[in-house]
Structure formats: structure tokens, C-alpha cells
Design a protein around this nucleic acid. Structure first.
Lengths: 97, 97
DNA sequence: TGCTATAGTTTGTGCTACAAACTATCTGAC
DNA sequence: GTCAGATAGTTTGTAGCACAAACTATAGCA
């Protein structure tokens, strides 16, 4: 019975990971808008995802304004796959199994 | 974008709901063993599920020992279905959508 | 030289999952 | 009978987390 990864299971982070899994990278403002998150909330989620190595944070400047962009890592992609497997396992969970 | 129900999303309660969805009823001791939960933890999860009307708690006596058994309600079954729909929605989440 | 906007980060708080401690009853052993 | 576990739960205390409000810092314009 493989446990679900709590870092990924949290609904906001799950959405973030799913979005990032489909793009090369996405920046802070885009993610905040796409997922309707406050900046503080998004910021802390991204820091958590980076801390466990599921995403990579790149800080640059666009013109003179700071621009933070995020990309999923190979490890993040692997864990996301494992997460869905664990969910599928729960989904099949019945007493008879 | 229908949000996931946090009561069901919590992994332990999700397993409980999945188990109960496949049986007429299950008692406290069985659930604690089947899901490897401490009694305190199981007790509080079951109370939460009852509070929102997803399960029904029936207290009887088996011989002279108290016996608490749990069954999913129609509402619980409905919400569990809605939950999986919401999860599937997230699973399909990509930027292009 | 203000004033508003943009792009984030830090801080404070209310809630939650969990296990330890507790309650209450039963069942032998002596 | 009574003492010592075992059984079946519930209540309580705590550590950790998600969230938004407050804050920092710079840009760009009137």
C-alpha cells in the first residue's frame, strides 16, 4: 500500500504540478492568474515544491522588472507519475482485494 | 473548476470511504486493522465523516461488548462519485485546455 | 517628488491529523 | 471477590500546514 505523497496531494500543488508538467516553464504571474491564487499562497507552495526538488526556480529580469519562472524537474515528473499510481490504487480499494 | 471536497480528499478518509463503498457496513475494529490506524485517529475521522452526513454510525452490543459499526450513506456515495470526477478533472489539467 | 502599479516574500493565525492519555467494561487467574 | 490485563472506544494536547494580510522593493508616470 504505497502512500500518497502529501506534498503533491495538496490540491493547489497538484494543480501546479499538472500545469507545469505540460509546459517548458511558467512564470509567477501566469500561475497566479491561471490558478486564481494569491501571491503569498503561490509563493509558499512554490518554495515547498522547490525544497523537495520537484520544481526548479529561475529568477531573471524582464527588462528591468524581476521575473520568476518555474519548471518541473525530472524528479518532479517521476513523483507526479507515482502519485497518480498511488491514487489509482486507492481508487481500486475494496474489502475484497 | 469544481473543487475537491477536503473531507474526502484527506487520504485516510478517502480510503475509509472507498472501503465503506464496497460493503454493507464495517465495524471499528475491522477498519482500524484494515487501514492500520490508531483508534484515536480512526475515531475522529469517523466523527468527521458522520458530521457531514457521509456515513452513518450504529452502536450496538455484541454479547456484552460495545460494537460500533459504520455504513456509507447515499449522500456519501454521491459525494465520493463527485470527488473522483473532480480528481479526473485535475488529472486532465494542462495549459492548453 | 509624490503616487500608483508590479512582483514578489514574510508573518500571523486558525484549522487539522495524529497519537497519547483517559474512560469504561469485560474476562480470567488466584 | 478482587486484581491484572484485554477490549472498545473517546477526549485532549500538539506540531505542522494553508492561507491571506502586511510588508519590501523597484518601476513608471504626472
Amino acid at each position: 500500500m504505497s502512500e500518497v505523497d502529501p506534498v503533491i496531494h495538496q490540491p493547489t500543488r497538484l494543480r501546479i504540478m499538472m500545469l507545469l508538467s505540460g509546459v517548458r516553464s511558467a512564470d509567477f504571474t501566469f500561475l497566479a492568474g491561471a490558478l486564481a491564487l494569491t501571491k503569498g499562497n503561490l509563493s509558499s507552495h512554490m518554495n515547498q515544491l522547490e525544497k523537495v526538488g520537484y520544481i526548479e526556480i529561475t529568477k531573471t529580469f524582464k527588462g528591468k522588472m524581476p521575473n520568476t519562472s518555474y519548471a518541473i524537474t525530472a524528479e518532479g515528473r517521476r513523483q507526479l507519475g507515482a502519485y497518480w499510481q498511488a491514487i489509482d490504487e486507492i481508487r481500486r480499494l475494496t474489502v475484497s482485494d
